[in-house]
Design a protein around this nucleic acid. Structure first.
Length: 238
DNA sequence: AAAATATTCAACCGCGCGATG
DNA sequence: ACATCGCGCGGTTGAATATTT
Protein backbone atom coordinates (compact mmCIF):
# COMPACT_ATOMS: atom_id res chain seq x y z
CA UNK A 1 0.00 0.00 0.00
CA UNK A 2 1.51 3.35 -0.94
CA UNK A 3 2.57 5.10 2.24
CA UNK A 4 2.31 8.56 0.70
CA UNK A 5 -1.38 8.24 0.26
CA UNK A 6 -2.27 6.57 3.52
CA UNK A 7 0.10 8.21 5.95
CA UNK A 8 2.73 6.68 8.18
CA UNK A 9 1.22 3.20 8.49
CA UNK A 10 2.47 0.88 5.82
CA UNK A 11 -0.27 -1.57 4.93
CA UNK A 12 0.18 -4.92 3.23
CA UNK A 13 -1.93 -5.28 0.09
CA UNK A 14 -5.54 -6.36 0.35
CA UNK A 15 -4.59 -9.54 -1.49
CA UNK A 16 -2.50 -10.56 1.54
CA UNK A 17 -5.58 -10.82 3.75
CA UNK A 18 -7.70 -12.40 1.06
CA UNK A 19 -5.09 -15.08 0.41
CA UNK A 20 -5.13 -16.25 4.04
CA UNK A 21 -7.80 -18.65 2.76
CA UNK A 22 -5.22 -21.23 1.86
CA UNK A 23 -3.14 -21.24 5.04
CA UNK A 24 -2.96 -24.04 7.61
CA UNK A 25 -5.26 -22.44 10.24
CA UNK A 26 -8.16 -24.08 8.45
CA UNK A 27 -11.02 -24.00 10.95
CA UNK A 28 -10.40 -20.37 11.99
CA UNK A 29 -9.66 -19.07 8.55
CA UNK A 30 -13.10 -17.91 7.34
CA UNK A 31 -13.77 -15.90 10.48
CA UNK A 32 -10.27 -14.42 10.75
CA UNK A 33 -10.23 -13.56 7.09
CA UNK A 34 -13.52 -11.68 7.34
CA UNK A 35 -12.36 -9.76 10.39
CA UNK A 36 -9.02 -8.85 8.85
CA UNK A 37 -10.58 -7.78 5.57
CA UNK A 38 -13.12 -5.65 7.40
CA UNK A 39 -10.41 -4.13 9.59
CA UNK A 40 -8.36 -3.44 6.50
CA UNK A 41 -11.18 -1.64 4.76
CA UNK A 42 -12.03 0.46 7.82
CA UNK A 43 -8.41 1.51 8.39
CA UNK A 44 -7.70 2.32 4.77
CA UNK A 45 -10.94 4.25 4.38
CA UNK A 46 -10.07 6.25 7.47
CA UNK A 47 -6.61 7.01 6.13
CA UNK A 48 -8.07 7.79 2.75
CA UNK A 49 -10.52 10.28 4.23
CA UNK A 50 -7.74 11.97 6.22
CA UNK A 51 -5.58 12.15 3.09
CA UNK A 52 -8.44 13.58 1.07
CA UNK A 53 -9.24 16.14 3.77
CA UNK A 54 -5.61 17.24 3.83
CA UNK A 55 -5.54 17.41 0.04
CA UNK A 56 -8.65 19.61 0.07
CA UNK A 57 -7.30 21.99 2.72
CA UNK A 58 -7.33 25.53 1.45
CA UNK A 59 -4.22 27.66 1.65
CA UNK A 60 -3.34 31.21 0.75
CA UNK A 61 -5.37 34.40 1.09
CA UNK A 62 -8.64 34.28 2.97
CA UNK A 63 -11.95 35.07 1.30
CA UNK A 64 -14.50 37.39 2.87
CA UNK A 65 -16.90 34.50 3.26
CA UNK A 66 -14.27 32.51 5.15
CA UNK A 67 -13.63 35.46 7.46
CA UNK A 68 -17.32 35.75 8.26
CA UNK A 69 -17.53 32.06 8.96
CA UNK A 70 -14.49 32.18 11.21
CA UNK A 71 -15.83 35.16 13.17
CA UNK A 72 -19.11 33.34 13.71
CA UNK A 73 -17.30 30.20 14.83
CA UNK A 74 -15.09 32.05 17.30
CA UNK A 75 -18.05 33.96 18.72
CA UNK A 76 -19.74 30.64 19.48
CA UNK A 77 -16.80 28.42 20.41
CA UNK A 78 -14.31 30.95 21.72
CA UNK A 79 -10.61 31.47 20.99
CA UNK A 80 -9.41 27.93 21.71
CA UNK A 81 -9.20 24.42 20.31
CA UNK A 82 -8.50 25.76 16.87
CA UNK A 83 -8.42 22.38 15.16
CA UNK A 84 -11.88 21.51 16.48
CA UNK A 85 -13.08 24.99 15.65
CA UNK A 86 -11.80 24.70 12.09
CA UNK A 87 -13.64 21.41 11.62
CA UNK A 88 -16.82 22.56 13.33
CA UNK A 89 -16.97 25.74 11.30
CA UNK A 90 -16.80 23.82 8.05
CA UNK A 91 -13.83 25.88 6.92
CA UNK A 92 -11.40 23.93 4.78
CA UNK A 93 -8.54 25.45 6.75
CA UNK A 94 -6.16 24.08 9.33
CA UNK A 95 -6.63 25.08 12.94
CA UNK A 96 -3.40 27.01 13.00
CA UNK A 97 -4.37 28.87 9.85
CA UNK A 98 -7.66 29.88 11.51
CA UNK A 99 -5.84 30.96 14.65
CA UNK A 100 -3.38 33.05 12.66
CA UNK A 101 -6.14 34.74 10.67
CA UNK A 102 -8.05 35.52 13.83
CA UNK A 103 -5.08 36.75 15.85
CA UNK A 104 -3.52 38.84 13.08
CA UNK A 105 -6.53 40.18 11.23
CA UNK A 106 -10.02 39.50 12.58
CA UNK A 107 -9.55 39.92 16.32
CA UNK A 108 -11.45 42.92 17.69
CA UNK A 109 -9.54 46.05 18.81
CA UNK A 110 -6.83 45.52 16.22
CA UNK A 111 -5.35 48.61 14.61
CA UNK A 112 -5.11 48.28 10.85
CA UNK A 113 -3.54 51.63 9.99
CA UNK A 114 0.05 52.73 9.59
CA UNK A 115 2.46 52.49 12.49
CA UNK A 116 2.70 55.91 14.11
CA UNK A 117 5.95 57.64 14.99
CA UNK A 118 5.32 57.02 18.69
CA UNK A 119 4.78 53.35 18.01
CA UNK A 120 7.93 53.28 15.90
CA UNK A 121 9.93 54.81 18.75
CA UNK A 122 8.58 52.24 21.11
CA UNK A 123 9.37 49.37 18.77
CA UNK A 124 12.96 50.54 18.45
CA UNK A 125 13.31 50.89 22.19
CA UNK A 126 11.76 47.56 22.98
CA UNK A 127 13.68 45.76 20.28
CA UNK A 128 16.89 47.10 21.72
CA UNK A 129 15.74 45.87 25.10
CA UNK A 130 14.30 42.48 24.19
CA UNK A 131 15.64 41.64 20.74
CA UNK A 132 13.44 39.66 18.33
CA UNK A 133 10.85 38.79 20.96
CA UNK A 134 8.03 40.12 18.84
CA UNK A 135 5.13 38.82 20.86
CA UNK A 136 6.54 40.48 23.96
CA UNK A 137 7.06 43.73 22.08
CA UNK A 138 3.53 43.47 20.67
CA UNK A 139 2.08 43.29 24.18
CA UNK A 140 3.39 46.81 24.76
CA UNK A 141 1.64 48.10 21.64
CA UNK A 142 -2.12 47.64 22.05
CA UNK A 143 -3.86 46.71 18.83
CA UNK A 144 -0.69 45.64 17.07
CA UNK A 145 0.27 42.05 16.35
CA UNK A 146 3.65 40.40 16.64
CA UNK A 147 3.52 39.64 12.92
CA UNK A 148 2.84 43.26 12.06
CA UNK A 149 5.68 44.53 14.24
CA UNK A 150 8.05 41.90 12.91
CA UNK A 151 7.25 42.86 9.34
CA UNK A 152 7.55 46.55 10.13
CA UNK A 153 10.92 46.00 11.74
CA UNK A 154 12.21 44.00 8.81
CA UNK A 155 10.99 46.43 6.16
CA UNK A 156 11.46 49.81 7.81
CA UNK A 157 13.60 49.73 10.90
CA UNK A 158 16.22 47.06 10.26
CA UNK A 159 17.72 49.16 7.51
CA UNK A 160 17.94 52.15 9.82
CA UNK A 161 19.47 50.01 12.52
CA UNK A 162 22.10 48.74 10.07
CA UNK A 163 22.94 52.28 9.02
CA UNK A 164 23.26 53.23 12.67
CA UNK A 165 25.52 50.28 13.33
CA UNK A 166 27.75 51.18 10.40
CA UNK A 167 27.86 54.81 11.45
CA UNK A 168 28.66 53.97 15.03
CA UNK A 169 31.39 51.51 14.03
CA UNK A 170 32.85 54.12 11.66
CA UNK A 171 32.84 56.74 14.40
CA UNK A 172 34.35 54.20 16.76
CA UNK A 173 37.22 53.50 14.40
CA UNK A 174 37.77 57.22 13.91
CA UNK A 175 37.86 57.75 17.64
CA UNK A 176 40.23 54.87 18.22
CA UNK A 177 42.67 56.50 15.84
CA UNK A 178 42.49 59.88 17.54
CA UNK A 179 42.48 58.63 21.10
CA UNK A 180 45.50 56.78 22.35
CA UNK A 181 44.05 55.19 25.44
CA UNK A 182 42.12 51.95 24.85
CA UNK A 183 39.92 52.69 27.85
CA UNK A 184 38.40 55.61 26.06
CA UNK A 185 37.34 53.31 23.23
CA UNK A 186 35.67 50.83 25.55
CA UNK A 187 33.76 53.59 27.30
CA UNK A 188 32.46 54.78 23.96
CA UNK A 189 31.45 51.26 22.93
CA UNK A 190 29.49 50.64 26.06
CA UNK A 191 27.68 53.90 25.50
CA UNK A 192 26.83 52.96 21.94
CA UNK A 193 25.55 49.58 22.97
CA UNK A 194 23.38 50.85 25.79
CA UNK A 195 19.67 51.29 25.03
CA UNK A 196 19.95 55.00 25.66
CA UNK A 197 22.91 55.28 23.32
CA UNK A 198 21.04 53.58 20.50
CA UNK A 199 17.97 55.68 21.14
CA UNK A 200 20.03 58.84 20.98
CA UNK A 201 21.61 57.70 17.75
CA UNK A 202 18.25 56.74 16.32
CA UNK A 203 16.73 60.04 17.31
CA UNK A 204 19.41 61.86 15.34
CA UNK A 205 18.16 60.12 12.23
CA UNK A 206 14.56 60.73 13.07
CA UNK A 207 12.86 63.86 11.85
CA UNK A 208 10.77 64.49 14.97
CA UNK A 209 13.32 65.10 17.66
CA UNK A 210 11.16 67.08 20.07
CA UNK A 211 8.92 64.21 21.11
CA UNK A 212 11.75 61.79 21.04
CA UNK A 213 13.78 63.60 23.72
CA UNK A 214 10.98 63.52 26.23
CA UNK A 215 10.34 59.84 25.55
CA UNK A 216 14.02 59.06 25.78
CA UNK A 217 14.19 60.03 29.43
CA UNK A 218 11.03 58.19 30.14
CA UNK A 219 12.44 55.13 28.45
CA UNK A 220 15.65 55.37 30.38
CA UNK A 221 13.75 55.36 33.65
CA UNK A 222 11.50 52.55 32.50
CA UNK A 223 14.40 50.42 31.36
CA UNK A 224 16.27 50.91 34.60
CA UNK A 225 13.10 50.08 36.49
CA UNK A 226 12.54 46.89 34.48
CA UNK A 227 16.10 45.75 34.89
CA UNK A 228 16.15 46.43 38.59
CA UNK A 229 12.99 44.39 38.86
CA UNK A 230 14.67 41.49 37.06
CA UNK A 231 17.68 41.77 39.34
CA UNK A 232 15.42 41.71 42.38
CA UNK A 233 13.64 38.62 41.09
CA UNK A 234 16.92 36.86 40.39
CA UNK A 235 18.41 37.74 43.75
CA UNK A 236 15.29 36.59 45.54
CA UNK A 237 15.64 33.23 43.79
CA UNK A 238 19.15 33.00 45.11
C1' DA B 1 4.64 51.22 -22.42
C1' DA B 2 6.91 47.27 -20.95
C1' DA B 3 10.23 44.71 -18.50
C1' DA B 4 13.05 44.31 -14.50
C1' DT B 5 13.74 45.01 -9.85
C1' DA B 6 12.53 46.18 -5.12
C1' DT B 7 9.31 46.35 -1.41
C1' DT B 8 5.53 44.99 1.44
C1' DC B 9 2.91 42.04 4.24
C1' DA B 10 -0.35 38.11 4.83
C1' DA B 11 0.27 33.56 5.41
C1' DC B 12 2.89 29.33 6.08
C1' DC B 13 6.27 26.34 8.42
C1' DG B 14 9.19 24.18 11.89
C1' DC B 15 10.20 24.00 16.49
C1' DG B 16 9.62 23.94 21.35
C1' DC B 17 6.82 24.00 25.46
C1' DG B 18 3.14 22.85 28.59
C1' DA B 19 -1.07 20.22 29.43
C1' DT B 20 -3.28 15.98 29.32
C1' DG B 21 -4.21 11.07 29.08
C1' DA C 1 7.75 8.01 32.06
C1' DC C 2 6.04 8.49 27.71
C1' DA C 3 3.15 9.85 23.67
C1' DT C 4 0.05 12.97 21.82
C1' DC C 5 -2.23 17.28 21.25
C1' DG C 6 -2.86 22.20 21.15
C1' DC C 7 -0.78 26.32 21.05
C1' DG C 8 2.49 30.22 20.62
C1' DC C 9 6.65 31.99 18.76
C1' DG C 10 10.01 33.49 15.43
C1' DG C 11 11.82 32.76 10.78
C1' DT C 12 10.72 32.42 6.02
C1' DT C 13 8.11 32.50 1.75
C1' DG C 14 5.73 34.19 -2.16
C1' DA C 15 2.08 36.88 -4.38
C1' DA C 16 0.70 41.51 -5.01
C1' DT C 17 2.09 46.04 -5.60
C1' DA C 18 5.24 49.91 -6.31
C1' DT C 19 9.22 51.80 -8.30
C1' DT C 20 12.93 52.08 -11.46
C1' DT C 21 15.13 51.40 -15.85
Amino acid sequence: MPCKMFGAISMPPFFFFWSINSCSLCHLVPCIRRILCLWYLVITMDHYQVAMQEAEMRKGPWLEEEDERLIAAVSILGERRWDSLAKASGLRRSGRSCRLRWMNYLRPNLKHGHITEEEEHLIVQLHKQWGNRWSRIARSLPGRTDNEIKNYWRTHLRKKALILEEESSASNSRQSVTTTASTAATTNNSEQNSPLGICEAFSSLHSNNGDWDSEKDDYNLRTCGDLSGEVEKLSSLG
